[in-house]
Simulated assay, not measured.
Amino acid sequence: MNKILLLEDDEALALGIEFTLKDEGYDVTRCACVQDAIKAFNKEEFNIVLLDVMLPDGSGYDVCKHIREKSEVPIIFLTACDDEVNVVLGLDIGGDDYITKPFRVRELISRIKAIQRRFEKKSVRENIFKCGDIVLYTENAKVEKNGIEIVLSSQEYKLLLIFMTNPNKIMSREEILDKLIEGAGSYFDTNTLSVYIKRVREKIEHDSSSPEYIITKRGLGYIWNSEVQKG
């Protein structure tokens, strides 16, 4: 099911959008302020984001900037300001489209579907994953930290990809191993996994003895912390 994050402080409008989107089969998370939207985005993965611009505690532009540090998810601005300056600003900071209020909800759904079609045409190879200072390009299996390429072995790269595509989710050692050896025809035990995690930490963490990205959950496994901010 496609998941949509909706940030809109006009409750009547938000309820109308939410009702129609759910009727179309979308799973909607509705927020009315910037902080709640950022928390929701950091907690879950969404297929598309709808952002109102003027909000009680800030601007949808702030949420867009936060999202673009981590993800290339499609973003549509919902705005009452259709002047060129506001439109250009929204697109320049990473928005994919905008729709001017008042609008018909069916028009919004058409815009959503059009953007989804464009993004679906991109192959998985073109995906870019961002978190803090780390950027991973699946097109060429390239990883950068602060804009400088990090050299990873194939298994280190695959391990990092597993973590970055499963943000804020506790994964057991067994689950990580299953993903790591899938289709590889290789055998790893938990000790080998510990070595790979140690190597990846040494390459991506500011201080591998006090990791920010790959967090150990004692007795449970590991979790990728997607809330790391740029240093």
Rank of each mutant, 00 (worst) to 15 (best):
K169E: 14
K169N: 10
K169R: 14
I170N: 05
M171D: 07
M171P: 10
R173C: 11
E174Y: 08
E174W: 08
I176L: 11
I176D: 06
L177N: 08
L177C: 07
K179I: 08
K179Y: 13
L180I: 11
I181P: 03
I181C: 10
I181M: 15
I181W: 05
I181H: 07
E182I: 11
A184Q: 14
A184N: 14
G185H: 11
G185F: 08
G185I: 09
Y187P: 00
Y187T: 07
Y187G: 06
Y187R: 13
F188M: 10
F188D: 05
D189S: 09
T190P: 08
T190D: 15
N191G: 11
L193P: 04
L193S: 02
L193I: 05
L193F: 05
L193V: 04
V195R: 13
Y196I: 10
R199E: 01
V200E: 00
V200Q: 02
R201K: 15
R201L: 03
E202T: 11
K203A: 01
K203I: 03
K203E: 05
K203H: 09
K203D: 05
H206L: 07
D207G: 03
S208W: 07
S209I: 03
S209E: 08
S209G: 03
S210P: 09
E212V: 01
I214R: 00
I214Q: 00
I215T: 00
T216L: 07
T216S: 11
T216Y: 09
K217T: 12
K217S: 14
R218A: 05
R218P: 00
G219A: 03
L220Y: 15
L220K: 14
L220N: 10
L220V: 06
L220I: 02
G221D: 07
G221R: 02
Y222P: 02
I223N: 05
I223R: 13
W224L: 07
W224K: 04
W224S: 02
W224C: 04
N225G: 09
E227C: 07
Q229G: 13
K230E: 13
